[in-house]
Computed example of a mutant assay.
Amino acid sequence: LRERLASAARYSPDAASAGRRALRNELLGLIALSAPDSGAQLAEAQFAAGDNLTDRLAALAAMTLIPGEAREALIARFAKTYAAEPLVLDKWLMAQALIPESGTLDRVRSLMQHPAFSLTNPNRVRALIGGFAANLTQFNRTDGEGYAFLAEIVIALDRTNPQVASRLLASFKSWRMLEPRRKALAETKLGMVANTPNLSRDVADIAERTLA
């Protein structure tokens, strides 16, 4: 089915073409999950042949699901290809922050040292840190390190951009729905934020309402 959706025509943004691309790219993601070796080959081929950002981003997203050297090579290749395009690098950062693996938190911490990242750049923060907060398996790690990391970032960011910090803190909004262990860990980190001296009104308000 995925091959039947391929088109030899030049890229077109019309609805029918966009729909075919979307379905074809969804199928690529499913192949990556069910048959990693084939998925990696298809993702590499799609990236190499891609004549539009949509297909190349889909290739990157599919490859992030497949651990190994091929993934890291494509991640590096994508960054090099789009090094001069900040908005595309935001998507590159987010794709890595969403990897559903235990090593993702370390990856995110490492990416914070990347030349493309700055805690003073709201778009970068939303892409990398916000992306991690949306990564349900890793933000909600059983050891609580996902909660600790986000709380640390919120406190640090509150000094320079309380609006973005408060939006990140809102990622805790569903903490009461968690099972007891995670719930307790999340509540502890929320309390740590709430008890930080000299919080901005934005962050203090979110912390108080989330804990109420």
Rank of each mutant, 00 (worst) to 15 (best):
N121E: 13
M112S: 03
L98M: 10
P67F: 12
A35G: 02
Y82Q: 03
L53M: 09
D37F: 00
F117G: 08
G103Q: 07
L93E: 01
V108S: 01
I99Y: 01
A73T: 08
L60N: 00
R77W: 04
R124K: 11
D55R: 03
L53Y: 08
A84K: 13
A35C: 05
R77T: 12
L87V: 09
E44G: 01
I75P: 00
S118Q: 11
T104R: 03
S38V: 09
F78I: 09
D55E: 15
A95F: 13
L111I: 10
R126C: 11
T64C: 15
E44P: 00
L93T: 06
N123P: 11
L60H: 01
E44C: 01
A49T: 04
G68S: 10
A59V: 11
S38D: 10
Q96R: 13
L119H: 09
R109L: 11
S110N: 12
A43L: 01
L57H: 04
A49F: 11
A58K: 04
A62Y: 07
T104L: 02
P36G: 05
T120M: 12
M63V: 05
A83Y: 07
A59T: 05
K80A: 15
V108C: 05
S118Y: 14
S118T: 13
R124G: 10
E101I: 09
M112N: 03
A116G: 07
S102C: 10
I99Q: 03
T81N: 04
A95N: 15
G103D: 14
L74Y: 08
Q46M: 09
R71W: 13
E85Q: 14
A58G: 08
L89A: 06
L74H: 00
L53R: 08
S34P: 02
L53N: 10
A116W: 14
Q41E: 10
P67M: 14
V108A: 02
F47D: 00
D37W: 02
L74T: 02
M94E: 13
D51A: 07
P122M: 08
A40L: 00
A79D: 06
Q46Y: 08
L53P: 02
M63C: 04
